[in-house]
């Protein structure tokens, strides 16, 4: 230790476990919700300039909108000039109520470009995606990224199901997304719907947190034999994903889910249990016991 080191507001060691915290997971979800555009420009050149990126996004959205316009069933565009104040299609209805646009997602299985098109019609740059999510994220915002000045009323984007608490993705359950009418920035939002039978969840969620399949159980650092017994006791199935720790002890990589599953023995070690799909938990395992949890930096999973 020396004086310069002590000047640091925080040391990396103090941040152990942050990567599995709510903020880190939400950020990850919102970043990976964006379709990665090919960016051939040298990466070091003005990496943080937002304006060109936004223009590119808008152009991409416009191109997509052009392709799908014909497929939208009778969009009702009111208003003579500028953006419309309401929009209706088979996928989404949007109307202005007071100072807020209220978007009602009618078809959670629509191509997400159709939602974007709706928001665009009322002058909002909102990219909305509906993803199959594990139970505790159904009907909720699973990821969000906002950019731009705050709206005049200080509110951000909010979402809720109607009726409240219903399982979005099932009949009779709609989801509304509320956006301040003077929102001038752009946003990416992922909302969770219930998965179809056999469909894998797109969100990443520990299976051991409230509302998930292994609620109340601690799987980390137990043997595969122990955890699989608990999984079966609950009438669930386990799939394995092998964790490959980096040689230096810093970080890890992952085999694809299910790869080399035959090698996994009862004495292997489980580091995390995640919700994979209905009735199936994904166990992240290593052959050897490691000094600290590679997935959660030595801390138990939190959710």
């Amino acid at each position: 230790m020396n004086e310069l080191k002590n000047l640091a507001r925080v040391h990396d060691e103090d941040l152990a476990g942050q990567a599995s915290g709510a903020g880190a997971r939400a950020l990850l979800a919102s970043i990976t919700a964006e379709e990665p555009a090919a960016e051939p420009a040298p990466w070091f050149v003005r990496v943080a300039r937002r304006r060109p990126a936004r223009r590119r996004l808008a152009l991409a959205a416009a191109a997509v909108a052009g392709l799908v316009t014909a497929a939208v069933v009778g969009p009702t565009v009111l208003g003579e000039r500028g953006p419309a104040t309401s929009y209706a299609s088979a996928a989404i209805d949007i109307e202005l109520r007071g100072d807020t646009y209220v978007a009602t997602i009618k078809d959670p299985f629509a191509d997400h470009a159709k939602y974007t098109e709706g928001f665009k019609a009322v002058g909002l740059n909102v990219n909305l995606e509906v993803i199959p999510a594990s139970p505790s994220r159904v009907g909720k915002i699973a990821g969000m990224s906002l950019s731009g000045p705050l709206s005049g009323n200080g509110r951000s984007i909010e979402a809720e199901t109607a009726p409240e608490g219903c399982a979005f993705g099932q009949d009779g359950c709609a989801m509304t997304v509320r956006v301040p009418h003077d929102w001038a920035g752009w946003a990416r939002i992922q909302v969770g719907r219930s998965a179809k039978p056999g469909e894998k969840y797109r969100n990443l969620r520990p299976a051991t947190v409230v509302g998930e399949m292994l609620e109340g159980y601690r799987a980390d650092e137990k043997t595969v034999g122990e955890v699989v017994a608990e999984v079966q006791r609950r009438g669930l199935k386990a799939v394995f994903q092998i964790v490959l720790p980096s040689p230096g002890g810093e970080g890890y990589s992952l085999e694809p889910e299910g790869a080399r599953a035959a090698e996994v023995g009862d004495d292997w070690i489980v580091w995390d249990a995640q919700s994979s799909q209905a009735g199936v938990v994904r166990l992240l395992v290593t052959k050897e016991r490691l000094p600290k949890n590679p997935i959660h930096s030595g801390r138990p999973p939190v959710g």
């Binding site: 942050q18 915290g21 709510a22 939400a26 003005r46 943080a48 937002r50 950019s147």
Partner: peptide
């Protein structure tokens, strides 16, 4: 580079991530 651009420009405080902001405020 991000930090340098951030300090240089008026672009700061554009991006808002609610859960991340909460974690950082706490830290």
């Amino acid at each position: 580079n991000v930090l340098a651009n951030h300090r240089r420009g008026q672009d700061r405080r554009r991006t808002r991530h609610v859960a991340l902001d909460a974690d950082l405020a706490d830290l």
